Structure formats: C-alpha cells, structure tokens
Amino acid sequence: MNGRDTGAGTGTAEPRVARADSATGAFVAHRDLLFTVAYEMLGSAADAEDVLQETWLRWVDVDLGTVRNSRAYLVRITTRQALARLRTLARRKESYVGPWLPEPLLTAPDVAEDAELADSVSMAMLLVLETLTPTERAVFVLREVFAVGYGEIAEAVGKSPAAVRQIIHRARARVAARRPRGTVSAAETHAVLEAFRQAVDTGDLRRLLGVLAPDVVFLGDGGGIARAAPEPIVGAERVAPLAAGLRRFGAAALRPALVNGCPALVLRLDGKVDTVLAPRIADGRVTGLYAVRNPEKLSRMDRETVLRR
C-alpha cells in the first residue's frame, strides 16, 4: 500500500513541480523587463516591486498550456496591476507634502548606452509622463519604449486596437509638447554637469548663472521628512544661491553618478545618500534641477538596479 501511495504521489507531484519550474523560469527570465515596465508607469521602485509580486501571484495560477507568448502575457499582467496601482498613487500624491519626484535609481552604464531607454527612465521624462492619464501613460510606455503591438496593448489596457491608436496619438502630442527639444549627448550632459559641480565647489554665483538657464526650475522632494523647498523655485537668480549653498558640504561630498541612466550628482553625508540631484539639460545649460531628499526614496541608491527592454 505504501508503494501505491508513493507512486500516486509522485505521479501527481512531478507535473506540478514541472509546471512550477516552468512558471518560475519564465518569470525570472523577464523579471527585469517587467520591473522596468512597472517603474516607468509608476515612477516608484517600491511600488514597482509590489506590482511584480502581484504579477507573480497571478502568473503561477495561469495554465501555461494556453500561453503562446510568456513575455507578452507577463507584460499584460504587469500592466494591469500597474494601472490599478497608479490610481492608488494618484490619491497618495494628493496628500504628499511638497513637490513629488520619481524615486531615483542607481543604474549601470549599459542603461546609458541604450539612449532610448535612458531617455524614457530619466527623471525629466518621468515627470513628463506624470502629466498623462493612467491609460495614456500605459499605452505610451508600452508602445514607445517597449514596441508592444497595438493588439497586445489593447488586451493589457482593456481597449480596442483602434482606441489604442487614438490614445497613443494623443499621448505622443502631449509628451512632445513638454519634453526637451532635440537630444543631448552624454558627453554634453557630463560637461554641463561638471561645470555646475565646479561652480558649486567655488561658490561662484556668476559661474552658476552661466550654467543655469534663465528660466531654470528647481524642484525639491523631501516628502515632509527631509527639509526641502515646499514649492518649485523658478529662475536662475533664485536657484543659483540655493545651489551655491551646497558648497558648505565640500566638493568630495557631491559626486557624479549614473541615475536613471543619466548623469547626476549624489550628495553623501557621513557615508549615507542625503540628496540626489538630477539635471534636465538643453542648449548647454541646466533647465531643470530635481533634488530628491525623501529618505524613503533613496534606498536603491546604494546598489545598481537592472533595467531592460
């Protein structure tokens, strides 16, 4: 009787284990892509990780025999979960203290080498995406960044392919109206950012005014936890003294890093990340300066985050 019980158990368990291994293998293979999709939709690594957990829980219940393309299926689940999370985030942002900025990620050089990916996850672009509706953002990200087909996008967002085409047309127009004109090379970005850092190091307001665009916008995100400007600060004459104040921490404390695939500056105090300064650059000057100080958003700055398309 024991032999029969063991045999029956093995016969039932082996297919179950095989299915679990197959599901795990597919999920792990696409995990970095799924995280990138969720992060670009949410601007929050913590929420993106939660979305991946929810995606996994739904994925393990799927009959893999009915799945023709595991990548497309997983992207669809992730998109739906991210859309639901976006609506929760919208309510959370309504009570957020001060300006809200995306959660910065320390990224490897390979992200910067993919110019389209780096642009899509840059702090400046993520802020542009904040102006879209949740569905517009999902459609734009899936189509423009990940080249997902209209049919697959339609299934993911619960719209018809014709409706998706209309949504992407509208989203492209809204993004084009807000994103920087032209492209900025990594070399130019490095040069402008280094000029800014040197100007801060010397405390020379004249040099800072030369690096900052006249209508530069400074946004500081402290989340009500760390000290930060409660409102946007506009204009080089107002931003330059604020930037010059960083001199008191010393040049060694403000170091270059790749943040969201783009050159940025990281301020470390007593070995801990205190502030991430991400610039927006156009025509050889800093047009936007985004300072993330909320400690709840800095946890991923001590290790590289892998992003994939």
Score class of each variant (00 low, 15 high):
P161K: 03
P161I: 04
A162N: 13
A162I: 11
A163K: 11
Q166R: 13
Q166L: 14
I168V: 15
R170Y: 10
A171Q: 03
R172Y: 02
A173C: 04
V175K: 02
V175T: 05
R178A: 14
R179K: 10
R179F: 07
P180I: 00
R181T: 15
R181N: 12
A186S: 14
A187P: 00
E188V: 05
E188T: 08
T189W: 11
A191K: 08
A191L: 07
V192K: 00
V192P: 01
L193M: 02
E194Y: 01
A195D: 11
F196G: 06
R197G: 05
Q198G: 06
Q198N: 12
A199Q: 04
V200I: 13
D201R: 06
T202S: 14
G203Y: 02
G203N: 07
G203A: 10
D204I: 00
D204N: 10
R206A: 15
R207C: 07
L208R: 04
L209T: 04
V211M: 01
V211E: 02
L212E: 05
P214D: 03
D215G: 10
V216L: 02
F218T: 02
L219S: 05
D221T: 00
D221E: 05
G224L: 02
I225P: 03
A226S: 10
A229M: 09
P230F: 01
E231Q: 15
P232A: 02
I233P: 02
I233V: 15
G235T: 05
A236D: 05
A236V: 06
A236L: 03
E237F: 14
E237Q: 13
E237P: 07
V239S: 08
V239I: 08
A240Q: 05
P241D: 11
A243Q: 06
G245Q: 07
G245P: 02
L246Y: 15
L246F: 15
F249Y: 14
G250I: 02
A251S: 13
A252D: 13
A253V: 08
A253D: 09
A253N: 09
P256G: 11
P256M: 09
A257L: 10
A257C: 12
L258F: 06
V259Y: 04
N260D: 15
N260P: 08
N260I: 10
G261H: 07
C262I: 12
A264W: 05
L265H: 07
V266C: 14
V266W: 08
L267T: 11
L267I: 12
R268V: 12
D270C: 08
D270N: 14
D270F: 13
G271A: 08
G271S: 09
K272Y: 13
V273P: 00
T275R: 13
V276N: 13
L277P: 09
A278H: 07
R280M: 11
R280Y: 07
A282T: 00
A282D: 08
D283S: 12
D283Y: 03
G284I: 01
R285S: 03
V286K: 00
V286L: 03
G288S: 01
L289Q: 00
A291G: 10
V292D: 04
N294Q: 03
P295L: 13
K297N: 10
